[in-house]
């Protein structure tokens, strides 16, 4: 696999991946909003509305609470930057992207953690009750969902004997039977719960709430405005796309290009777009169907994901 890819192809794929995640994030959020509105009997804003919002916000003035330090301004940048690095190295289109040898699943999970920590610190820096409330809640949910993700990832790495994402994807393509093993299915459920928790969707957090007592993510970003708010919104939507794309990569890898060629890459682009869109629609439909959990019930959900992931590792011992 290594060495077969010419440099221009690798560069083109990297650019495609990054641009796809940057543009795809807001579009996916718009699509999910549209689906929810339609199911609830409303027309809803157009799918590209989040992009228009970003353009509007980027031109608005940035403000900063009077007590905040540089952390407050740095947090949105770190959030977007970590997601960009993941978008660059993850094998979203081809099994051998640029720097693919360094695309370690654990490293990607910890990069996501860097983004979450930055946002929580930015929230605490505002010196308001809401910032602290959001940060405390988000970190409590994260303290249980990050481990679940880590263990789920480990369960996936065991059969491939490597935690390198391109390797896992390439080997699951070579051995489709792996995809139906118990550890796959268990870690699939754990992974899904983590995606919902990490991206702040129902039933963990309601992204469209404006009721202070129930806010988690919204409470953290209340003080951001202008270009900073645009970055936060962009970063959050990019994280959702990256998580869904990684999920698609690991559990439904078909379509990812294993050999160079314009045709293969075109198929890969269509495949990943279709998979992420389908997952996004499914998530939106699920959101319409469920109610938000009480905050103190959320840890039960994420702890459940953690237990499922540990069970996945245990079953990885039984079914090699």
């Amino acid at each position: 696999m290594t060495g077969a890819w010419p440099l221009p192809a690798v560069a083109a794929i990297s650019v495609l991946q990054v641009l796809g995640v940057v543009a795809g994030g807001p579009l996916l959020v718009g699509l999910m909003r549209k689906v929810r509105c339609r199911l609830e009997g409303r027309v809803g804003p157009p799918v590209h509305q989040p992009l228009l919002d970003l353009r509007k916000l980027a031109r608005r003035e940035r403000t900063r609470p009077d007590q905040a330090s540089w952390i407050f301004s740095a947090a949105p940048v770190v959030l977007v930057a970590t997601t960009l690095v993941i978008a660059l190295v993850a094998p979203l289109l081809a099994t051998d992207p640029a720097f693919g040898w360094s695309a370690d699943l654990f490293a990607l999970v910890y990069l996501l953690l860097v983004g979450s920590v930055a946002l929580a610190l930015g929230a605490l820096d505002t010196g308001t009750a809401f910032g602290g409330m959001g940060a405390s809640r988000a970190m409590t949910i994260g303290a249980l969902s990050e481990p679940a993700l880590l263990v789920a990832v480990l369960a996936l790495s065991v059969p491939a004997r490597s935690s390198n994402v391109p390797t896992i994807v390439a080997r699951s393509l070579a051995h489709p039977a792996w995809l139906a093993t118990p550890q796959r299915l268990l870690s699939l459920v754990a992974f899904l719960i983590v995606i919902v928790a990490e991206s702040g969707r129902l039933p963990v957090d309601n992204p469209s709430t404006h009721l202070e007592l129930t806010m988690v993510h919204e409470a953290m970003v209340l003080e951001y405005s202008g270009a900073d708010l645009a970055l936060v919104k962009l970063g959050e939507s990019m994280r959702l796309v990256v998580l869904l794309a990684l999920f698609a990569d690991l559990f439904v890898p078909w379509g990812v290009a294993t050999a160079p060629g314009v045709g293969h890459v075109a198929v890969a682009v269509v495949a990943i777009a279709a998979k992420v869109t389908a997952l996004g629609i499914a998530l939106a439909v699920f959101e319409v169907a469920v109610a938000k959990l009480r905050l103190f019930r959320v840890p039960e959900l994420t702890a459940g994901a953690f237990v499922l992931a540990v069970l996945a590792v245990v079953s990885a011992l039984v079914v090699p």
Binding site: L121, T126, V151, F306
Partner: peptide, 22 residues
């Protein structure tokens, strides 16, 4: 894994409450 998650929370608390805000 669980220790990692708890440690992240711990040090967001230590740095966020001690160094940031008012």
């Amino acid at each position: 894994a669980l220790t990692g998650g708890l440690t992240a929370l711990t040090f967001v608390k230590a740095a966020g409450i001690g160094l940031l805000g008012r």
